[in-house]
Each structure stands twice: as structure tokens, then as C-alpha cells.
Design a protein around this nucleic acid. Sequence first.
DNA 1: CACGTGTACTTGCTAAAAGCAAGTGCTGCA
DNA 2: TGCAGCACTTGCTTTTAGCAAGTACACGTG
Lengths: 165, 165
Amino acid sequence: MKRRHRKSDCPVHFALEVFGDAWTLLIIRDLMFKGRNSYTDFLRAEEGIATNVLADRLVRLEEDGVLEKEGPPGGASTSRYRLTSKGIDLLPIMLEIIGWSAKYDPKTAADRGFVRRLRREPTELAAEIRSQLIDRRSEAEASPRRAKGARASSRRKTKEREVSS
Amino acid sequence: MKRRHRKSDCPVHFALEVFGDAWTLLIIRDLMFKGRNSYTDFLRAEEGIATNVLADRLVRLEEDGVLEKEGPPGGASTSRYRLTSKGIDLLPIMLEIIGWSAKYDPKTAADRGFVRRLRREPTELAAEIRSQLIDRRSEAEASPRRAKGARASSRRKTKEREVSS
DNA sequence: CACGTGTACTTGCTAAAAGCAAGTGCTGCA
DNA sequence: TGCAGCACTTGCTTTTAGCAAGTACACGTG
């Protein structure tokens, strides 16, 4: 898909070129809070992204340096995506978004305890999630999953670790 | 234009239903930081929004309670838009976005002093801008611009007050 | 070693939204 | 009375999204 050209150097516009659409931030949400990190995981999200749109967003996000693909070079089996530090730096934006929606959406599914903590000690909460994300990242780096069953336990942990939001 | 139905109660998705597109946040930026508040002002923004898209976004944002239209009831002369408190509450999101883009866009047009202050004392900066926005809002409320030239000076002030970003 | 399963896509088609130029209907003002 | 400005709307083309189906590759099982 063609790359849209930037129309200004305004920081808001720059950010919108990266995630100014209906789907990109949902993928980032899945990576950040839901422990989803594969193509089929993203498809499972309840909003129901189309396969072609998902494929497109994933290459864009990789081009933009927001996430990295850890693919088995042969192209086989499950490849995983993970946030880069640039992607992890979107966390404060996501938290502010969650806070805003929790305030204004009467039917919000945001976890109440999470939101309360977000209001009371946002810095601590952000730092905590951030370090979890960094852990997950370097953990994945440590086991480059060349072998099939190797470190399967750590992979399970990674998959199931989910932040309540 | 038809209203898209919500596909989940996830707070991220809720927010994206309000501003998950390429243009909505630019309008909010104009209202928040650039002192633009009329239809033609928004058209003047360098990104160049199309007239039909702008009209559509303005009614959506009004429906969503993010902004209010202060229109001369007759439909004549210039009508102005202003952020509601729900709209003003988007400020922290905008500031985080600006911070992120300033960090990752080498050609960013974000004001360096503004960004430095954003990093050093984000809470104070947010509070300051927020109170400016609230002032502007109640000021506009005080002079419901029924008469032509009445309170023209305050209108000029409102128009020219622009936050550097 | 054929066969089914799972993963990660691509392709083809339709529907919706964006982009663009032009036009409309007000209203103040000269 | 006529012109200019504002806030749109309309009509048309292009782009993007949505959806169902199909493809390619590897692994595991019988």
C-alpha cells in the first residue's frame, strides 16, 4: 500500500500519520495490555479487524519502528510481534486515553481498580507496566526461539501475562 | 453520514470511535493550541481538510459532546466552536502525543521551549493551558455575541491568544 | 509419505469514506 | 442592488475498508 505523504511537521499530525486510523491503536493495545502478539491473536480481538487491514497495519507499524517482527526465517510456524522502545513510549498516551474513556463512557469495560490506580498514582502505574513490557521484550530477545519446544514455559508465561485494564 | 456502531466496550475502542481518524484530532489541536475556532479557520490549517469532511467531523464532535457550536441563531455571519469540558479533558492525551512526536520526529515543528517544559513540569503546563481554555470558554459564554460590534475587543483577544506548541 | 491442521498471508469483489471542484443560500455592507 | 464572505451541500472520482475465499508453507500424525 502506498505511503501517504506528510502534509505538515506539526507533532499532532506526525502522530496521526502513525496511528491516525481506527485499527492501529487497537493492535498496540493488544500488545501492551492483552498479551496478544501474533497475527491470529490480533484477529481474535473482539472488534474483528479484517485480515488484509491487519497485514497492512503490521507492515506499516514495523516500517514506522513501533513494533518488530520476530519471524522464523523460513516463514513457517507462528511469528511474534513485540513493541520497540518507540512503541513502548506510546504507553502514556494509551493510559491517558483509557482514563478519558473511563470517565466519559458509562458502559466502559475498563477495570475499576485499574482506573482508580491510574487516577491516584499514574506515574507508578505507568512505570510498572513499562517495566513489564521491557522485561517481556528482553526475555523474548534472550530466547530467539530457534528450537521448537525450547523455553516453552517462558513462552506460556509471556502469553498469559495480561495487565488488567 | 451514518453512525458506526461500537464493537466493544474497550476504553481504547471507545476513544477511537470519537477521534480514531486522520482529521478529528487536528480540529481539536486547532481549538486547543492554535486559537482557531471557526469553519474557515479550520480550513486554513496547513493539512488542508476537505470541506465536506470538516462539516462531517464538526457535527460528529458536537454529537459526541466534545465541542459546542455557538451559532448566531439566524444562521448568519461567523459561528464559533469551542471545546466542552469533555473536549478540554483531551488535553493530557494531546500533550502526550506532542511529547511522543517531538521525541521521534527529527523534523518536528514542535516548539522546543514548550517541549522542554512539557518534559520538566508536565502537570504545571497542563494546568496552565487547561485554565486558559476554561477562561476562554466562560469568557465566550459571558458575551453571547448577539450584537454585532459588542465586545469586539474580547473577541480579538480570544482569537489571537495562541499557545506555542 | 500422503493428509489434515495451523499460521500468515494474498486476491477479488463490494461498500464506504475521503478528496476535489463547483455550486447554493444566507447576510451584512457599500 | 450588487458584491463579498461564511458555512455549507452536491456530484463525481479515487482511495480505503470489509468480507469471503484461496494460497503457500511447515509441522505432526497414521
